[in-house]
Design a protein around this nucleic acid. Sequence first.
DNA 1: CGCAATGTTGAGTATATTCAATTATCGTGG
DNA 2: CCACGATAATTGAATATACTCAACATTGCG
Lengths: 251, 251
Amino acid sequence: MANDFRQSSVRLSCYSCPLRSMSHFRRFSEDELDFVARFKRGELSTDAGATVVVEGTNSAHLYTVLEGWGFRYKILEDGRRQILNYVVPGDLVGLQGALMAEMQHSVEALTPMTLCMFERSRLFTLFEKHASLAYDLTWLAAREESILDEHLLSIGRRTALERAAYLLAFLHERGRLTGLLDETRRYVPVTQTHVADTLGLSIVHTNKTLRRLGDRGMIRWLDRGCDVLDVEALCEVANWRPDDALVRPFI
Amino acid sequence: MANDFRQSSVRLSCYSCPLRSMSHFRRFSEDELDFVARFKRGELSTDAGATVVVEGTNSAHLYTVLEGWGFRYKILEDGRRQILNYVVPGDLVGLQGALMAEMQHSVEALTPMTLCMFERSRLFTLFEKHASLAYDLTWLAAREESILDEHLLSIGRRTALERAAYLLAFLHERGRLTGLLDETRRYVPVTQTHVADTLGLSIVHTNKTLRRLGDRGMIRWLDRGCDVLDVEALCEVANWRPDDALVRPFI
DNA sequence: CGCAATGTTGAGTATATTCAATTATCGTGG
DNA sequence: CCACGATAATTGAATATACTCAACATTGCG
C-alpha cells in the first residue's frame, strides 16, 4: 500500500524505446532523440497500488509512463476521493509539479508500472533548444484538457448508465492505442471502487449500474476488472465517439 | 443570441495593454513584447450572449481575453449542456483548436467581451523564437488542467451546497485577480441556469441550493447574477482554498 | 402591452445513498 | 493443508437527495 519502488535492473535506452516503434506515437528526428536520451535520468518501477506522486509535494522529476496503468486523483479532507483521469504508456506524469509550485493531485499505480524519469530542472532547456518537443508538451497538456472536458460532461450531465459506458469505452480505447489491450487481452484493471470514484457514484449504485451493462452483454465483470466485449455498444449508450487522431507526440 | 461581432473602433497596442499594468500578470521583456505585438492580428468585440467559438469548427485564430466574462461548454445531442470553465481577462481561448484538429468545446460571452486575436499559423514561430512565451503557454494549459481537476472533484464528490459555494468562491477569486471585481463591484454575471449547468444540477435544485447560501448571508442573488458577500465563508463550506500563485503568465 | 427569459415554489417521483449483511477470492501464517 | 483476515463484489431495505412537472411572479425589452 505504501510507496514501494524498485530500482529497475535493465534500463532501456531511448534509442530502443519500445513505444517509439508503435504507430500511435510520432517519429522523432535524430536530433530530438539525442536530446531526450540525455534528458532522461533513470527509470522508476512500481508495484500495483504504489503511490507515484503525492498531492502537495514537489518532486524534482517529471515522468513518462512506459508500461502499465495508473490513475490521478484528489481527495477531500474527510476522505472523499475523485479519480480525475487514468495514465497509460506515453502519458506525462508530474508536468504540473514541474511548472507550478507543487502537485495538485496524486498518482497511483493500478498495475505494476515502469516510468521514464526526467530532470525537472532541465525542462526549460527543452523549451530553449527544441521547439518541436516544447510544442509536443503543450499538445499533451491540451489533450489532457480535452479529456477532462469530456469527463466533466460525463459526470455533470450523463446518467449513471451512460457514464459507466463512457468510462469503459474510454479506458478500452486508451488501452488499445497504447498497446495495453488487444483482441486477446481485453481486461481493464480497475475495481468497482475505482469506477465509483471516477463516476462520482457510490459503490453500491456503481455495482448495480455495471451489472446492467453486463446484462446487456457489453462487458463481463471479473475480479478486479472487466473484459470489454462490445465497445461499439458502449459508445452508443454513452453517445460518445473516441478521438480519431492517428498519431500523438510523446516525450 | 447568434454570433454578433463588432469591429472595434479603438484598437489597443500591446505596448499599452491595460492587463500588463496589473500586478497579477508577469512582466514582459522588450523582446517578448515586440514579438507579441507583431503576433497580434486584431481585436474582437462581442455582445453578451455571443458565441465566440463553436465546437467542431477550426478557427484560424487564437485569442486572449482582454475584457469581460465568458464560459466554455459542451453539449450532448439531446441538448444537455455542461459548462466546463469560465474565461476571464488573460485567459487563452482556442488553444486546443490551434494545436489539434478542431475545437472540442464552444465558448460564449457572459458579458460584452473584447478579445485579442492571434494568427494560428504563426504559433509555431512563437515556439521557435520565444521559449519563454512557449513556456508560458504550457503553464497556462497546465493551470487550466488543474482548475478542471478541481471542478471534477467538485461535481463528483462535493454535495450540492458545497459545489455551489465552491463555484461562487472560485468565480469571485478569478474576477478579483483579473480586475473584474473589487470591493465595490462584486457582481458575478451568471444566471441560475449557468450555475446549474456548471454544477451538474437541475435549475430547480440549484435555485433551492443558492437560496440556502443566501439565507446564510454568503451571497445575495440579484437579477442575472449575484453579489458575493462572504468569500471566506464560501471557501469554508466548500473546503477549498484558492491557489495563491501571485503572478501568472499572459500572452 | 405582451412576449421572452429568469427566478420561485410546492408536490410527486425517480435516482442514488447509506446501512447492513452476505459471498467470493486471495494471500499469509500457523 | 486450512483457518484467518483483508479486499472485492453483491444484494435488499430504508432513507436522502435531486429531478420533473406545473404553476406563478418578476423583469426587461420591442
